[in-house]
């Protein structure tokens, strides 16, 4: 059984930048516990020495040459933004440094 606590749900919500109502918090606490309990049966599988699969492709070294190509105009780049000022995307106050 995986038991997700309220504190964990709050932490995950914060990392996901989601705001939960207390009702949602209760619901997610239960559903996450259920889903993760279900997922936890992977623990039964012996994976000693088994490499992880990051991609199914055996591609390596996919790259391009260092060449500049213009794509969007500034108007296009900013067209979908909710708030624009001086050619920039505008955001409200930033609370703390990364």
């Amino acid at each position: 059984m995986v038991k997700i606590t309220d504190v964990e749900v709050e932490k995950i919500a914060r990392l996901s930048q989601l705001e939960l109502t207390s009702e949602e918090k209760r619901m997610f606490t239960q559903q996450l516990s259920d889903i993760l309990t279900f997922a936890q049966h992977l623990a039964q599988v012996n994976t000693d020495g088994v490499p992880p699969t990051i991609s199914v492709l055996d591609l390596v070294n996919v790259w391009r040459d260092d060449e500049v190509k213009e794509w969007l105009s500034r108007e296009e780049a900013l067209a979908e933004a909710a708030v624009v000022e001086d050619g920039c995307f505008k955001v409200p106050r930033i609370m703390d440094e990364e």
């Binding site: 930048q17 979908e80 933004a81 995307f89 409200p92």
Partner: peptide
């Protein structure tokens, strides 16, 4: 910030939270 429906807020973290 760059596209999509944005829910305004006094600070950027709250903006992210509400928007999402």
């Amino acid at each position: 910030v760059r596209y999509g429906r944005r829910v305004e807020a006094p600070d950027v973290d709250t903006l992210y939270n509400r928007t999402r």
